[in-house]
Design a protein around this nucleic acid. Structure first.
Length: 445
RNA sequence: UCCGCAGUAGCUCAAUGGCAGAGCAUUCGGCUGUUAACCGAAGGGUUGUAGGUUCGAGUCCUACCUGCGGAGCCA
């Protein structure tokens, strides 16, 4: 087989092998691992769609090729021509009997071996770690989460209206911003949320969403935090808190169903307990902040929680975990004290000290996966709030215009793609759910 | 930023204050059905950095660096 012939052949992907049983195919990929037994080699080939074991018999190929294949290291790139054979001993159900092969590059000393490695080493080699089966599976699930989100919203009448990444000021004013030099000495900030812009586009299109990277310069060092993460934020004109909760519930259920349907192989690799995902179906329990506080007091009395929670505060990670541990499904907690929520939240007319906001807490300790609510509609109220939070009113004039010209009840939420993906996968740390994570002390590779 | 833990071969880890070790990876050899294959051999070290205690420090002390886990904050 000449180089030209093998390189230009139409080739077959490993996940399509079942359509070619008994036929001769050309596979292009990388050596995932190799075992040998005297005059027989078992190279495992990886091509991005899957891994297949090939069988090379010494007396079936040329002596030169045998020598070349025998010495291949992990991640050598090669093209293989062979026959697809169903074999019950093979993990994927099929094996390749090798007829011919071409080695594009012979590799030695690939750093990531089939044995265990530490976190720092793997993160330093993230660009190579992505080739590993488990990382591959996590990112395929991420792909399906994103696809499900977009399909769900598109099919529900939402219009994609992306918000800017450079912003002139904080959306929420409370968290830390990444500052960048714009032109002529002006500062710009990387967006923390498309929320305020969504309210403008919702007034133009009715139901909208934005989807993109967001940035938080929080010095958080936990398994749930990245400094750069992807967020989908739907916003609906003429929507109430109930509408926002209904949408959250439907969207999360749809995502879980899609992941179960499309990523069963990957969930197997990740050893995910799929019954946990199967239980993500409406209705989700909905509890009032006051009731959540009651749970926390019970938890303290039982000795599960270390300190007694004071009404009025926001929940910490152990609090969220305790509340969500009371349920098998995601739980929606609403009517938080306004003091702990963003300035643009609408107030409960019966109890003005409460905000019409909702957090969706995922089970199994994955924490707040969605945060949202109904927005305030009154121009005067928002002006007061902006002053109260010591925000620059001038920067918010365009936003206040939305209350001057056709103000309406409206609401929406934001969902972190990585937190959702970590939850779907059942994995420990959010850093594996994005190809190249950006964290407090890590911006490389 | 605060609290806790760790840093020894390319990787994962051992080593009572007393000779620096193993498995994997690499190189060489053996094996016609291996499943993180196995068997044999070889090479591979300024024990994170700088001081200190001691006859003697990978081990004890101090500072710093790097990483991990957690808190606060948040999706």
């Amino acid at each position: 087989m000449t180089t030209h012939a093998i390189a230009s052949d139409n080739h077959t992907y490993i996940n399509q092998l079942s359509n070619h049983a008994g036929a001769e195919v050309v596979l292009k990929g990388w050596l995932y691992n190799m075992r040998s037994s005297g005059k027989i080699l078992f190279p495992q080939l990886r091509d991005g769609t899957g891994v297949v074991q090939c069988v090379v018999l010494k007396n079936a190929i040329s002596p030169e090729l045998w020598e070349a294949l025998k010495g291949l290291g992990q991640e050598s790139s090669l093209v293989i021509r062979g026959t697809v054979r169903a074999d019950s001993r093979a993990p994927g159900g099929y094996e390749i009997d090798v007829i011919d092969a071409e080695v594009l590059q012979q590799v030695h000393d690939y750093p990531i071996t089939p044995k265990e490695h530490g976190t720092e080493f793997l993160m330093d080699h993230r660009h190579l770690w992505l080739r590993s089966r488990r990382q591959h599976a996590v990112l395929k699930v991420r792909h399906t989460v994103v696809q499900a989100v977009r399909n769900f919203l598109d099919n529900d009448g939402f219009t994609l209206c992306d918000s800017p990444i450079f912003t002139p000021a904080a959306c929420e004013g409370t968290t830390t911003l990444f500052e960048v030099d714009y032109f002529d000495g002006e500062k710009a900030y990387l967006t923390q949320s498309g929320q305020l812009y969504n309210e403008a586009t919702a007034a133009a299109f009715g139901k909208v969403y934005c989807f993109g990277p967001t940035f938080r310069a929080e010095k958080s060092k936990t398994r749930r935090h990245l400094t750069e993460f992807w967020m989908v934020e739907p916003e609906m004109a003429y929507a109430t808190l109930d509408d926002v909760m209904n949408l959250s519930e439907r969207m999360l259920s749809y995502i879980a169903a899609q992941v179960l349907e499309q990523r069963s192989e990957e969930l197997k690799i990740l050893e995910r307990d799929t019954s946990k995902l199967e239980s993500i179906v409406p209705p989700f329990p909905r509890i009032h902040y006051d009731d959540a506080v009651k749970f926390l007091h019970e938890g303290f009395e039982k000795g599960v929680l270390e300190s007694k929670f004071e009404w009025g505060g926001d929940f910490g990670a152990p609090d969220e975990t305790y509340i969500s541990s009371q349920f098998k499904k995601p739980v929606m907690v609403s009517h938080y004290p306004a003091a702990v929520k963003a300035f643009y939240m609408a107030r409960d007319p019966e109890r003005p000290e409460l905000a019409l906001g909702v957090d969706v807490l995922a089970p199994e300790g994955y924490g707040e996966v969605i945060g949202g609510g109904e927005r305030a509609t009154s121009l005067e109220f928002l002006q007061e709030q902006i002053a109260l939070h010591e925000l620059p009113e001038e920067a918010f004039q365009w936003y206040l215009d939305l209350r001057r010209y056709g103000s309406i009840p409206h609401g929406g939420f934001g969902m972190g793609i990585e937190r959702c993906t970590a939850w779907m996968c059942g994995i420990e740390h959010i850093r594996e759910t994005i190809p190249f994570p950006r964290m407090l002390y890590r911006i490389r590779p």
